[in-house]
């Protein structure tokens, strides 16, 4: 399986993402610079954390117009797994691939620590290796992680089981403790916590590895049927 890690000017978790895939998941991975226009040949697309374009204007606001985003949207439309972590989540929100928006953290501080996450939906292509209702430990590192959407959107998210991760304790003011959501089709996941920083017990937790393993498991299953 071949993963792409999109690199925007100001991305800073791209190396973590790359090494999580290469060294821990042991799958193929390449960096793709934001100026590129094609994602042909890739089976899954990863948008890493960081501060794309310095977070100028709003987090993710300028990155959504990067040339590569057209290819990301096309990949999303054909059902490929797209994972946006932290700033990657913010980019997916700004690009309209996921509903809602991020506000500044309620207490205005940058939060950088391990947090407990509840797996609310383990039937997605990103969470099929977790147990039902499992609580996992994954680090967060963000200043704008206070998720917001209007009531109708929230109802829709809940009805379609699009809320995939919630915080065990609400750290940033997000509505309904939301830490990660998918699109309606379930192939685009955005989450503020960093699974790529939790792929080996030496890093404090290996709970994030199962997320990447889920993507591979889903892909293998799909691939086995279609060939």
């Amino acid at each position: 399986m071949k993963f792409a890690v999109i690199v925007f000017p100001g991305s800073n978790c791209d190396l973590d993402m790359y090494h999580a895939i290469q060294d821990e998941l042991e799958e193929e991975v390449s960096y793709v610079w934001h100026d590129e226009t094609s994602l042909e040949g890739f089976d899954a697309i990863l948008l890493p954390g960081g501060f794309s374009y310095g977070d100028y204007l709003r987090s993710g606001a300028i990155a959504k117009f990067s040339p590569i985003m057209k290819a990301v949207k096309e990949a999303a439309n054909v059902g490929k797994p797209i994972l946006g972590v932290c700033n990657g989540f913010q980019v997916l929100l700004e690009a309209g691939l996921l509903p809602g928006a991020m506000r500044r953290n309620e207490k205005l501080t940058f939060i950088c620590k391990q947090v407990g996450l509840k797996v609310k939906n383990q039937k997605t292509m990103f969470t099929n290796s977790y147990g039902e209702g499992e609580t996992i430990t994954i680090p967060v590192a963000h200043g704008d992680g206070n998720y917001y959407c209007d009531e109708q959107t929230l109802d829709r998210l809940k009805k379609n089981n699009q809320v995939v991760f919630t915080y065990s304790e609400n750290i940033n003011g997000s509505i309904e403790d939301i830490a990660g959501i998918t699109n309606e089709q379930g192939n685009v996941l955005g989450m503020m916590p960093h699974p790529e920083r939790a792929v080996d017990i030496l890093l404090g937790s290996a709970d994030g590895l199962k997320l990447f393993q889920s993507i591979v498991k889903h892909w293998r299953k799909q691939h086995a049927i279609t060939t």
Binding site: R103, R104, N105, E106, K107, L108, N146, Y148, G173
Partner: peptide, 13 residues
């Protein structure tokens, strides 16, 4: 500006 009804943490501080 933030929409009315959207919490403004900076404004509150």
């Amino acid at each position: 500006t933030l929409k009315e009804g959207v919490l403004d943490p900076q404004g509150s501080a």
